[in-house]
Write a protein that binds this DNA or RNA. Sequence first.
DNA 1: GCACAATGACACGTCGGTGTCCCATTTTCA
DNA 2: TGAAAATGGGACACCGACGTGTCATTGTGC
Lengths: 187, 187
Amino acid sequence: MTTTDSGVRQRTRRAILEAAAAVWARDFSASLGDIADRAEVSRSTLHRYFPERQALVDALLIDSQARLEEAWNGALAVSSTAIETVENIMAAIVDLADQILFLFSDPTRFVGNPHWTSDEDDGLPDLLRAAQSDGELDPDIDPHFVMGVMYSLIYVTAESVASGTLPRHKAAETAVRIFRHGLSPRS
Amino acid sequence: MTTTDSGVRQRTRRAILEAAAAVWARDFSASLGDIADRAEVSRSTLHRYFPERQALVDALLIDSQARLEEAWNGALAVSSTAIETVENIMAAIVDLADQILFLFSDPTRFVGNPHWTSDEDDGLPDLLRAAQSDGELDPDIDPHFVMGVMYSLIYVTAESVASGTLPRHKAAETAVRIFRHGLSPRS
DNA sequence: GCACAATGACACGTCGGTGTCCCATTTTCA
DNA sequence: TGAAAATGGGACACCGACGTGTCATTGTGC
């Protein structure tokens, strides 16, 4: 706790968080035992780092949101137009698929959780509207539906990478292309 | 059981199956109590129709596959080209979203279940390959990945219809258009 | 080598979902 | 109307996940 967060503690902590994201992204009802197994840690150890289930949920929630925001800002920094920003964000979060799934697969999962930053105040809907105004996305489609398409494309590409159907280096490009072409204005 | 499956029994049975599909499509770990509530039936009644959890799972599995096959055959009957068949199938199964989700959201859910007809022997991959040969779909994309995109589009459109974001009468058209444009060959 | 933190294995008690009865009440139909 | 069918709801035992604790073992820094 003091100076002795010697690499070990941080590494086990990260291993547990990674495992939790990977497991809970697919099945939020998975037991702590499953997560401990995935993290290659005993259930006792898991409980020492996160005394109760909720503590792990909160920690993963905070961590996932932080990493997502980091990716978001990185994408913003290198983009000029709205559609370019959207594409860069998609490309960036393909690597955060587990975290995204954990965060957004069930809209009611974190209601009432003090650590949950509602996705209303991030600028994605506004960004999509801007892309629609620029003539890059079909203006007749609801931005929230577009977000749904984004997330589901993230999901399938990540799943396909995990199962070996899709090579990792093609994942981001593929997802972005389907998104871009599928939602372009009617020609 | 004999001639006396007087409408009543059939209707409650259907109500339970519908409820189970709707609930388990989103969370397969949901309790039988949740399903009974959704079906507006007491838990006792549910147990009378399906003595154990597995019995309900099997019944829903059989029912969902039957309805899917029916939609499949209907789409086949009115289509001539491969891509047309795919589009008609997509349009048809938007209304079966709950059943599709229940059947395919977890690939490992029914392994070993004697009632499970592996999706290897339905012709979807072949159909997609045919559409690729016809120049209607990008030939560089793995058919199984295309199937993933199909299912995820079914999912988002159905979710959006349920949440009121997307009008029902536009659901099928929207899903098909995104699929078609998103996966068309590079131009 | 010695102290001390970290980990793993095990042992409880609690709680919710499940499966099974049983009985009262309502609905259906002859 | 009256019998049969169908349903609702409570009581109970069972089981697995969870939360908490203890104790032995490992390994890390001094």
